[in-house]
Amino acid sequence: MGSPMEYNGGSVVAMVGKDCVAIATDLRLGQQSIGVAYNFDKVVAVNDKLYYGLPGLATDVYSLREHLRFRVNMYRMKEEREITPKTFTHLVSSSLYEKRFGPWFIEPVVAGLPQPTELDPHPKPFISTMDTIGCITTPKDFAVAGTAADKLYGAAEGLWEPDLEPDDLFETISQTLLNAVDRDCLSGWGAIVHVITQDKVVTRRLRSRMD
């Protein structure tokens, strides 16, 4: 069957900007080399300040998304507040590690803007990523995952710069994603980009090569 991580294809990238974060995904769902759907959104909102993407085996994308929706709703009811990006990252991580010896074939990417608190009045934009068993990395610049990860690393390393304003961050993450997935057979078929700022989230659907 080949690697479960490459069975359905798909990629996600997240980037940090000046008081903003962005997260983007392609829309392909395939069965190895056959394209099945071009509306498969791998990025989900937890709330309007926190998004996450789940590239990997499509069945696990659904299962993990359902699991996380349940856990976040329980958190919300018990705590009567929204989950922070950092806490959410640890929630995802423990959910993955729970299946240490029969893992979800997913490498999640989290992007969010933490809300100011008394202890931390000026929180920094937050992104994180994990391997399939929940080992967390919290980069300062960008996080990539999926079948185009190597291409995304190259494109992002060349295009990203510190302190991008929301509009420039949108352009940077879009160009990074599009040019990376155009060199990947298993990713592409359209894309969606979310740019999260303190006062709004801008979501745009990108037209791209359909081959």
């Binding site: 190597d150 291409k151 690393y153 190259g154 494109a155 390393e157 060349g158 295009l159 879009s174 160009q175 599009l178 040019n179 990376a180 155009d182 060199r183 791209s208």
Partner: peptide, 19 residues
């Protein structure tokens, strides 16, 4: 070794792909 990293960047900057 770094073809997969560099080529998408070149597609964008030299061939102006997606621009």
């Amino acid at each position: 070794a770094a073809q997969s990293l560099i080529q998408p960047f070149l597609d964008n900057q030299i061939y102006f792909r997606n621009q």
